[in-house]
């Protein structure tokens, strides 16, 4: 099986098949990443489309020494950042505070927490997932990106550092802070 880097080299040489294989490997990941970052499906798909277009447009600038996946996520993160900024210009961001209220001013409902023996493989109900997604959106973008790339996309701290252009120590700190904020926000539904 060809590596991502070999495939992208073939695409740069004019192979449509190589691009299609890369697309099949990554399009879901990019869409999920964009969804976790934006919290909205339509926006996530737009951002994912834009990401692949930018990847194709920038193919000439890619250095074969760089990992394709890291480069792809760098573009995906910058693209979603633009979408988030666009949204921010027209909307409002709510910070995570203990005992917070919903956007409509009503107290947050008490939801049944996830139940499973392994906390990482919990069966999250649709309601809890929604609640979690909303809490994730309220994290500062820099924390959210680090946490999503690591826990959602499976990138190592080093890879996250490369995507975000920060040090590994900064990644470690951001992921820890993201965890703390989410635990505060979701205290009533966590085990």
């Amino acid at each position: 099986m060809r590596t991502d880097e070999e495939l992208f080299e073939l695409y740069r040489g004019g192979s449509r098949d190589a691009f299609e294989i890369l697309f099949s490997r990554y399009h879901r990941k990019v869409i999920h990443f964009a969804y976790r970052m934006t919290g909205e499906q339509a926006r996530a798909e737009e951002a994912a489309q834009e990401t692949f277009l930018r990847v194709a447009r920038a193919a000439g600038t890619w250095q074969p020494t760089a990992r394709f996946s890291t480069w792809l996520y760098t573009i995906a993160r910058r693209t979603t950042l633009n979408y988030i900024r666009d949204e921010k210009d027209g909307g409002e961001k709510v910070s995570i505070l203990p005992g917070e209220e919903d956007k409509d001013g009503q107290p947050a409902p008490q939801l049944p927490g996830p139940k499973a023996l392994n906390p990482e493989e919990m069966a999250w109900s649709a309601e809890v997932r929604e609640r979690f997604a909303a809490a994730l959106q309220r994290l500062p973008e820099t924390y959210r990106a680090a946490f999503v790339l690591n826990r959602g996309e499976g990138l190592s701290y080093e890879e996250v550092a490369s995507v975000l252009g920060i040090t590994v120590q900064a990644v470690k700190s951001r992921i820890f802070r993201a965890r703390e904020m989410l635990m505060e926000s979701l205290a009533e539904i966590l085990p």
Binding site: H27, R28, I31, H32, Y35, R36, Q41, A44, E45, P114, N118, P119, E120, E121, M122, W124, V128, R129, F132, A133, L136, F147, V148, R151, G152, R179, L182, M183, L186, L190, P191
Partner: peptide
């Protein structure tokens, strides 16, 4: 540790369908 693992699992559970 249990709570920390749970929030990590929560991120992975957030997925969307593809048009």
């Amino acid at each position: 540790e249990r709570r920390m693992r749970a929030v990590g699992g929560g991120v992975a559970s957030i997925e969307t369908s593809v048009s």
